[in-house]
Design a protein around this nucleic acid. Sequence first.
DNA 1: AAGATCTACAACCGCAGCCAC
DNA 2: TGTGGCTGCGGTTGTAGATCT
Length: 339
Amino acid sequence: MGKHSCCYKQKMRKGLWSPEEDEKLLNYITKHGHGCWSSVPKLAGLQRCGKSCRLRWVNYLRPDLKRGAFSAQEENLIIELHAVLGNRWSQIAAQLPGRTDNEIKNFWNSSIKKKLRQKGIDPNTHKPISETVDKQKQLTAGKENSEKISEDSESAAAINSTSMTNILHTQELFLNKFSVSNETTGTNCKPDLPGYLPFQDLNFGHVGMNTSSSVCFNLNNSSTLPSISSSVFQGPIRVKPSISLPSDNPSSDIHGIQNWEASSFSNNGSSTSNGSTASIELQSNNSFFENNVFSWGMATDCGKPGEEEFKWSEYLNTPFLLGNTLQNQTSQTMYSDVN
DNA sequence: AAGATCTACAACCGCAGCCAC
DNA sequence: TGTGGCTGCGGTTGTAGATCT
C-alpha cells in the first residue's frame, strides 16, 4: 500500500511538471491512449510513476478540461451538491463538465468555505454557524434531550429563513422526518448518502418562506411509476408512507400506481391530482411526517425497488443525468413518456 | 526593497476497492 | 481464500505568485 510499486524500481522525479514532461505525456497519450498507467511513464520516456502521470493527465492535460474561474452558476451547483454529497468530490465533479475533482476540492477549500463562513454558514453542515455552536454546546453538556432541542432550533431557523442555506436547512429538517426502509429487507435505515434524499433541486424554492414544499410526480397512467425530475437527480424515486401499505408483504403493492396514489395521497389532505400530474404538498410541521415511515427505491422497468441495490453514485453518473447538468439545463425525465 | 504572510492550486500520500491469479 | 497489482478517491502538503508590513 501507499507508494506505488513502480516508484521503487528507479529514482522517480517528483514535484512540478516541466513543459517538456507535459509534452511527452500529452504526445504519448494522444497517440496511444493511456492504457495501463503503470507502463505509461516508461513508454512515454518519463521519469515519473504511473500514478503521477495519471494525475497530471486527469487534472491538467486532458483536452476536455475547462479552464478559468468558476462561474457563479458552477459555484452554486457545487454548494448544492456538497450539501447533498458532502466531500465526494469525484461525484460532484461528474456534474460539472470540464472540471476535475481536485479543482473543485481546491476551490471549495480556498474560496467557497471562506465565503460561506463569512455569511455565517457552516460549510460542513450548511447550517447557520450559531446553530452548529449550539449543537456542540448541547453535546458537550450531554443533555439527554439535545436532539429535541436541536429539532426545535431547526424549526425556528427554518421558519425565519429566506436564504438558500436556510432552504437547504429546511430540507434537512424535512428529510430528518423520514426514516428510509429497504423494501427487500424491511429494515429501516438512512439512505447511503449523508442522510438526504436528493430533493434539493425539486420545487423547494418556497420552502424557506412557508415551511412547505411540493414534490411533483409525473403520473402518466396507471402503469407508470412516479418519477421525480431534478437537475441534480433524475429518475423515479418512490416515496410512500408505509403506514397505509395494504399488506405485510412490502412487494405486493410495488407495481401498481393505484397503491401509490392510495397510500401517498389519501393520507395527505393537501395533495392534488389532475390526471397526468400530481403533486404532494409536504408540510414540514405536519404530524404526517412525524408519524410515518417512508420507503424509497429505484424503479426499474420490471423490477421492484430494492431488488437491485440502489447505488447513488452510479445513478448520479448516468447519462440521463449528465445530459442535464450545466450543459443542458432543460428538464428531462428518465422515463420520458409524459404526455 | 525585503522579508513575512497569504492565497490558489498543483501534486503527493495513504488508503480502499476491484480484479486476476 | 489470500495476495499483489492497479486504479481512483479524499485528505494533506508543497510551491509559486501576490499582497502586506
